[in-house]
Each structure stands twice: as C-alpha cells, then as structure tokens.
Amino acid sequence: MADAKTKAQSIIDENAVAVFSKSYCPYCSASKRLLDGLGAKYKLVELDEVPDGSAIQAALLEISGQRTVPNIFIGKKHIGGNSDLQAKSGELKGLLTEVGAL
C-alpha cells in the first residue's frame, strides 16, 4: 500500500494534470473528452489496465478522500470527479494555462 501511495503521489506531483480513470467508465470518458477538447496535456492512469490499479485506487482514497473515478488533480490540487471538472469548465482553460497544461 505504501508503494502505491508513493506512486500515486509522485504522479500527482510530477504532472500538471493527473487523471486516474478506468477505461470502461463513462464519467471518465466525459472528463477525458473535455480535457482533450481543450487540448490539455495530462497524465492518464487507467486503473483497470495497470497491475497495481486497485492499490493505487485505495491510496487515492487516503490522498484525496475520494475513491471513485475519475479522480482528477490539476496543479497538485484535487479537483474531484467528472461532475466537479464539468462544473469548472468555464474556468478550466485558465486553470490549465496556469499550470502549463495547455
């Protein structure tokens, strides 16, 4: 668990935008579409496609208080899930520019 937490935290720390997702999740797809539509550069981790995905997901609960996906971080700050990201769509471009993801 400690390894997964360290891994998750370094992904968050080393990327302007980090999206923890599952490939089959419709909410995750909506978030990725929004970010792609803006041309954002982001680190994507498909938790169902990596061997330690469930451990990383458990670690994200400790880090962010959120277990569900998508679990999104911008500028090392926890944004939340898809509905949180969609709610920020008006300010998203500025936020992404600020962290160097556009």
Rank of each mutant, 00 (worst) to 15 (best):
C25W: 11
Q66I: 07
D3F: 02
G65D: 03
G94R: 01
K43A: 15
S23K: 01
T97Q: 13
V50G: 06
L47E: 07
D48I: 07
P70H: 05
K32R: 14
V19K: 00
K77S: 12
A2K: 12
V50Y: 08
L35R: 08
R67I: 10
Y42T: 11
S83G: 05
A59L: 11
P51C: 01
A16E: 05
A101H: 01
Q9R: 05
D84L: 07
E14G: 07
A87D: 13
N82A: 11
E91K: 13
A59R: 00
D52Q: 15
K43Y: 14
K43D: 15
L85T: 09
S54A: 14
S21R: 03
C28F: 07
A2W: 00
I79L: 09
I72E: 04
L38M: 12
L34S: 05
A30Y: 05
V17S: 06
A4L: 01
Q66H: 10
A55K: 12
Y24E: 00
A4Q: 03
A59P: 07
T6W: 02
D48S: 11
G53L: 13
A87H: 12
K5M: 09
L38R: 11
G90T: 11
I12Y: 03
L96D: 01
G65V: 08
V17G: 02
A55E: 09
P26A: 12
L95N: 02
L102G: 13
V69Q: 09
A18G: 04
S10Q: 15
D52F: 02
L61K: 14
S31L: 09
N71Q: 11
K77P: 00
P51F: 03
S10G: 01
Q57M: 13
Y42M: 06
